[in-house]
Design a protein around this nucleic acid. Structure first.
Lengths: 117, 117
DNA sequence: GAGGTACTATACCGAAAGGTTCAATACGAG
DNA sequence: CTCGTATTGAACCTTTCGGTATAGTACCTC
């Protein structure tokens, strides 16, 4: 799991880490601020930050006692690019679902006609 | 990690599983076919398929002895949507990098002028 | 420099991930 | 019904993950 893409997806696989990124989307924050919403120790959030840092999604600074984290979304570009290659498949699936639903509706309409006929 | 998004990202976090999905993008395949490229036992690939199935990214059929797997990309849509929300940040980062590079170039140009002056 | 605040390191834990091996199952072909 | 092929189940192992508690470090304030 040394590759960048795996590290990125792995970092995103945890809801706490996604929430941290969402928080950082509103601007840089200290560990304390980031930890506040969670029922979790500081240390645990600190670990999550290290994972995000390892994936290159977060960079840290130093301001007095604080080590503010800020978002670095660049690794998300490759992740997005990987997924988007499959876009045609999921829209195809949606189309197929649409077809299925249309078929169902068609069927029920036909049935209704039969009932009414 | 019960939520759909976590399951999806988690499934994508493994390079073997991503490779399996890439293979399935060319059409359905049996476990044997999927396992061929990997230095790994059938059973291991079977487990990966189960993970993908659990994430809703793969569905299985039955044809004689074979249990062909096919791609179901629909869960990728939500994953893509999540990531794309950050697009403005990574393009901002790229812009910032561009600014930085411009600044560097500016600097070296200035230096050159000094050298020549 | 003593004390408070913000954070991290270390050690530990239980559970899950990613493999293996080997036995079992499901199916088609003789 | 037996044999070969395709696949999964079960048991096991090692490593990683996500968390805790506790001690230590870094910095500001007084």
């Amino acid at each position: 799991m040394t590759d960048q893409l795996s590290a990125t997806f792995s970092a995103l696989a945890d809801p706490t880490r996604r929430a941290i990124l969402e928080q950082l989307a509103h601007g840089q924050a200290t560990v304390g601020e980031l930890a506040a919403p969670f029922d979790m120790t500081f240390a645990a959030v600190s670990k999550h930050l290290r994972v995000l840092e390892g994936a290159g999604l977060v960079s840290r600074g130093r301001e007095a006692q604080y080590r503010p984290a800020r978002l670095d979304a660049r690794p998300l570009e490759a992740a997005s690019a990987w997924i988007v290659d499959y876009e045609r498949f999921w829209s195809a699936s949606v189309d197929a679902l649409g077809d299925y639903l249309n078929a169902l509706q068609q069927l029920s309409t036909t049935k209704e006609e039969n009932t009414h006929g």
